[in-house]
Simulated scan of single mutants.
Amino acid sequence: MIVSAAPKAKAPSQDRGQRRVDRLLDAAADLILIHGAEGLKMDMVAKQAATSPGSLYQFFPNRAALLTALAERYGAEIEAIAQSNVRRQAAAPPESIEQAARQFLQPFLAFYEANPAYVLLAEASDRVFAGAGYDFGEDDQVALNMRQALQPFVASAHQTRLETVCKLLITTAHATISAAIKLPPVGKLDWLAELDALIIGYLRGLV
Rank of each mutant, 00 (worst) to 15 (best):
residue 116 P to H: 06
residue 76 A to N: 09
residue 83 Q to V: 14
residue 130 A to C: 13
residue 80 A to M: 00
residue 77 E to K: 10
residue 84 S to Y: 04
residue 94 P to F: 11
residue 80 A to S: 09
residue 114 A to C: 01
residue 99 Q to R: 04
residue 95 E to H: 14
residue 73 R to N: 09
residue 108 F to I: 01
residue 113 E to A: 07
residue 72 E to I: 10
residue 118 Y to V: 00
residue 111 F to W: 06
residue 99 Q to Y: 04
residue 122 A to V: 06
residue 106 Q to D: 13
residue 73 R to C: 08
residue 107 P to C: 00
residue 99 Q to T: 09
residue 114 A to H: 02
residue 91 A to F: 04
residue 113 E to C: 05
residue 92 A to Y: 07
residue 122 A to M: 03
residue 100 A to V: 05
residue 109 L to G: 15
residue 81 I to W: 01
residue 92 A to R: 13
residue 89 Q to Y: 00
residue 98 E to L: 03
residue 70 L to I: 00
residue 112 Y to G: 01
residue 115 N to C: 11
residue 126 D to Q: 12
residue 99 Q to A: 14
residue 92 A to I: 08
residue 71 A to T: 06
residue 87 R to L: 08
residue 115 N to A: 04
residue 123 E to Y: 07
residue 117 A to L: 03
residue 71 A to M: 12
residue 91 A to L: 08
residue 123 E to S: 06
residue 82 A to N: 05
residue 70 L to T: 01
residue 119 V to R: 02
residue 86 V to H: 02
residue 124 A to H: 11
residue 90 A to R: 07
residue 88 R to V: 02
residue 111 F to Q: 05
residue 115 N to G: 02
residue 99 Q to F: 08
residue 122 A to S: 13
residue 130 A to Q: 14
residue 115 N to Y: 05
residue 73 R to D: 13
residue 99 Q to S: 09
residue 84 S to N: 15
residue 76 A to S: 14
residue 79 E to N: 10
residue 84 S to L: 10
residue 71 A to Q: 13
residue 121 L to A: 07
residue 119 V to S: 03
residue 94 P to R: 04
residue 76 A to G: 14
residue 127 R to S: 13
residue 125 S to E: 09
residue 86 V to G: 00
residue 114 A to W: 02
residue 71 A to H: 06
residue 129 F to S: 01
residue 86 V to F: 05
residue 102 R to H: 12
residue 88 R to A: 14
residue 77 E to V: 05
residue 75 G to F: 07
residue 114 A to R: 09
residue 96 S to T: 15
residue 79 E to M: 02
residue 92 A to W: 01
residue 108 F to Y: 01
residue 117 A to N: 03
residue 89 Q to E: 13
residue 129 F to I: 05
residue 77 E to D: 13
residue 86 V to D: 00
residue 78 I to L: 15
residue 89 Q to M: 15
residue 85 N to P: 09
residue 82 A to Q: 13
residue 81 I to F: 01
residue 73 R to I: 08
residue 71 A to Y: 05
residue 72 E to L: 10
residue 71 A to E: 07
residue 114 A to T: 10
residue 107 P to Q: 03
residue 117 A to W: 05
residue 88 R to D: 05
residue 117 A to C: 12
residue 128 V to F: 09
residue 75 G to Q: 11
residue 109 L to E: 08
residue 110 A to M: 11
residue 128 V to I: 13
residue 118 Y to W: 07
residue 99 Q to D: 07
residue 108 F to E: 00
residue 73 R to H: 12
residue 95 E to L: 12
residue 111 F to N: 01
residue 130 A to Y: 13
residue 78 I to K: 15
residue 109 L to K: 12
residue 75 G to A: 13
residue 127 R to K: 12
residue 128 V to S: 03
residue 78 I to Y: 06
residue 90 A to P: 04
residue 119 V to C: 10
residue 112 Y to S: 06
residue 77 E to L: 05
residue 125 S to K: 07
residue 75 G to T: 05
residue 109 L to I: 14
residue 95 E to N: 13
residue 76 A to H: 14
residue 124 A to G: 13
residue 82 A to W: 12
residue 72 E to P: 03
residue 117 A to M: 03
residue 88 R to I: 01
residue 109 L to R: 09
residue 108 F to R: 02
